[in-house]
Write a protein that binds this DNA or RNA. Structure first.
Lengths: 150, 150
DNA sequence: ATAATTAAGTACTGATTCGGACATATTAAT
DNA sequence: ATTAATATGTCCGAATCAGTACTTAATTAT
């Protein structure tokens, strides 16, 4: 592959795509965090993602939670630690496979989920509903293609 | 607006879009960081973003750098601090407006830019080139719409 | 001119981020 | 059966992250 100069590098046609991807994610991300902050739920975005993922399941391994929330394992340990301190989740090890740890919502965690999940989805819905179904579907398809590039 | 139940909340049609947006950004982001790490440039993603933004400009204010890189001012102070310690940028205050600080590449910073920017763009290009121009354009348009929702 | 508002940066806090090293446990290969 | 390779989580370090409070400076309103 030919080596690029600084000038020709800055002219690459995929650069706007990179910028818009970051910009769109950033805008969403800030709005998402704002909603959690104003809800008074005292949940950070990562903590909320874990609570919402656990939902009304019977509990999941850290690996599974990480796969869904996209939180890497090293980070997840700390997030779950803080949720445990708040009494929203509990951990126990699974018999049969000593490597695995199950994380599950406590009673209070379930209450938080039932209250905060619909509220937050409603908060996001206000914005996302402004996008047509067609745009939404196209965006999902394209974002999937982009994800699969890497 | 009617209040959502946990069940109806989880059925909202925009949820896959949210997931794909996060997934695509995450995938890109990890690949981006991997490239910088393997290049041996000793630049973190944020540091690289600042260096690449400064490019061969004569220097920019923190505000302008933040607007382009999407790094918030509180974070930017630390990022620039570290770049300054590495001798890649320098800061000075502008006369005429005592609030502003100009950040500019040093000689070494320019060398790093000329070397790392084309290399990194080339690294990313390998992947992005697999996307058709049509998909790229559509994605840019849709991501802009999504950004503007918030 | 004086006061109120806005703007730009820095300092600080708590949380998150990722990778890498590590410990342990399980599974696969021989 | 033993060894090698994988899998799962935790711990650690350096950096980022966003928000808030604060300082200083510039701009606007009165």
């Amino acid at each position: 592959m030919a080596k690029l100069s600084a000038k020709s590098a800055s002219e690459q046609s995929f650069i706007p795509l990179m910028q818009e991807l970051a910009g769109a994610y950033q805008a969403f991300s800030l709005y998402d965090a704002e909603g959690l902050r104003k809800s008074g739920s005292d949940l950070t975005p990562s903590q909320a993602r874990v609570i919402f993922t656990l939902g009304d399941s019977e509990g999941m391994t850290c690996k599974d939670i990480g796969d869904i929330t996209l939180i890497t394992k090293g980070t997840l340990t700390g997030v779950v630690d803080r949720l445990e301190e708040k009494g929203l989740v509990e951990r126990w090890s699974v018999e049969g496979d000593g490597r695995k740890t199950i994380v599950a919502l406590t009673r209070r965690g379930k209450r938080a989920y039932q209250q905060e999940f619909p509220r937050h989805i409603g908060f996001l819905k206000e914005k996302f509903d402004r996008l047509s179904a067609s745009d939404r579907n196209q965006a999902v398809a394209l974002l999937e293609k982009i994800k699969d590039l890497f």
